[in-house]
Design a protein around this nucleic acid. Structure first.
Lengths: 65, 65
DNA sequence: TGATAATGTCAAGTTTATTTTACATTTTTT
DNA sequence: AAAAAATGTAAAATAAACTTGACATTATCA
């Protein structure tokens, strides 16, 4: 699954640390998601979408097969 | 986190087994999510929203605090 | 009513998300 | 250029999602 977190974060002028705090996870979690080491939980995805006032699907792009 | 899976599944006339197959998880996973034992992964949530042609947020409702 | 399908649930195991700690590298600021 | 801030990364531990298999209960149907 691909994602646009890094771009969104840049657009909003946030550090990984600040974003992490805003959605209540560790900085390493944000980093790992940006680096696409793993996908966020549904709850974290919802929090991120809310924060950036956008759709989950426009942040996290999953193309089937 | 609350969800409307059971209702959606009923509206679409699907058994847990059929739904499980459609989104490629086990029947027990569907059952556990309906019973709110745990939340789906982001990928599974996306698949379910696609299948039911609706928004993730209208299936899975997370109220903060 | 008796058979069959559907659902609920449990245990044990695997995989994935997330944490903490720690340190190295890169970027920004003074 | 030196200091400080931000990012990348890794290991070890924990928690959560998910699997398979098995069985019990409930609903549907012939």
């Amino acid at each position: 699954m691909k994602n646009k977190l890094k771009v969104l974060r840049a657009e909003h002028n946030l550090t990984q640390e600040q974003l992490a705090k805003a959605v209540e996870v560790s900085r390493q979690t944000i980093n790992a998601i940006e680096k696409e080491k793993f996908d966020p939980s549904l709850m974290l995805a919802i929090k991120l979408a809310r924060l950036f006032k956008t759709e989950i699907e426009s942040i996290f792009i999953y193309a089937k097969d």
